[in-house]
Amino acid sequence: MVVDSANMESAEEETMLSEESEEENSELSDHELQEAFTKGLLKPGMNLLVDKSKKFINNVEGLKQCLADLRRELPWVERLDMTNKPAVDVLDKVDEKVLAQTNGEVDADDDFQREMFFYRQAQATVLEALPLLNKLGVSTKRPDDYFAEMAKTDQHMQKIRKKLISKQMQLERSEKVKKLREQRKFGKKVQREVIQKRQKEKKAMMSAVKKYQKGMTDKLDFLEGDQKKSRESSDSTKKGMNKKGPNAKRKYKDRKFGFGGKKSGQKWNTKESYNDVSSFRAKVAHAKGGKKGKGGKQNKRPGKSVRQKMKSRS
């Protein structure tokens, strides 16, 4: 027994020494490889990885045998498997529309289209399966004393209900915001139109006032705010002026400044007019006298306080 234990210990020591020698050899080999790489003895492309082509085995007979082992000839009531196309949409049939879902062309990214396809396919399955179950005597309606627990808890359903309500509230808010934006846009549009209309009326009134100041018209219809009447009156006054002749203001200007011919430079001073001082009045020039009326009273402008009182009275 003692000899056996000594042999076992010697064997273990030999294995440990062999492992240490292997590690040293591996370290030395790595060091040698590094030195060879620095000297340029190692070049790229010496060691290449070769991909082995994978062999695919198509064992048709084995697959058929597995399918035969799995297949069971059971009645339809035990299987309840059906393959159906989606039910025909009545509304689209009335409108004579051909849906893409009936042709099997369903956009997988469109959630609504995909769910509607599942819904109509379930409808077709129910319409075909219910008569078969009734023939086989299988009841398809719940009894009056039927009791079953929901797969989802009440708390989970309350969370779903809250989420649905919050989504509905968000939709209502977004609709209200859209309506408010439309109303604001419409209000701004109406306000802009009103401002433009007022500007046009003001422009027309100012033009009518200027015409009245220049003596082109004698009527004050523009004060009433009726643009049509003012335009008609201005047209009629123009026609009357052409027939009757110029008014008194025009005649006075013609008499003062002349009519026709050269008009520029007529008011320039000459040597004779410069030396002629017969029309000079010292009181008028130095603002000592001023214009007086028939009664001899001076026509002065009332003070600011008096004018404010007059405005407040009116």
Rank of each mutant, 00 (worst) to 15 (best):
G45Y: 01
D111V: 13
K253A: 08
G295P: 03
T140Q: 01
N103G: 15
S10M: 09
V277R: 13
M1W: 02
V94I: 11
G258F: 00
N7H: 07
Q199G: 12
G187S: 14
D92M: 05
K159T: 12
E32A: 15
K162L: 15
F118V: 13
G295H: 11
M241G: 07
L63Y: 09
K263V: 15
S236A: 13
R114G: 01
R198N: 09
E182R: 05
S273F: 00
M116Y: 15
K228N: 07
D30E: 12
D145E: 07
I57A: 00
D221K: 08
D4Y: 02
K55C: 01
K294A: 04
G240E: 09
D218S: 04
K229A: 12
K229G: 03
I195M: 08
G225C: 01
K52S: 06
V277E: 12
F186L: 10
V306T: 03
K176M: 13
K203N: 15
R161C: 07
Q123M: 05
I160L: 11
D218G: 05
F186W: 10
V60T: 11
Q113S: 15
G261V: 03
V194D: 03
Q266P: 00
K163W: 14
K304N: 12
L80G: 00
S279H: 03
L48G: 04
M241A: 09
V98I: 06
L91V: 07
I195A: 10
R114E: 01
F147S: 14
R142I: 01
K229V: 10
E12C: 01
K214S: 07
L99S: 13
F257H: 07
F117R: 02
S207F: 15
V50N: 05
K297P: 00
K253M: 12
A124N: 08
R313W: 06
N25C: 13
K283V: 06
R72D: 08
G187V: 14
R231T: 09
K197M: 13
G261R: 04
E105A: 10
R173V: 13
E9L: 00
R301P: 00
K152A: 13
R173Y: 12
D107T: 10
K219Q: 11
A68R: 14
N47V: 11
T102Y: 05
Q266W: 01
K238N: 15
F112S: 08
K93E: 04
K135Y: 10
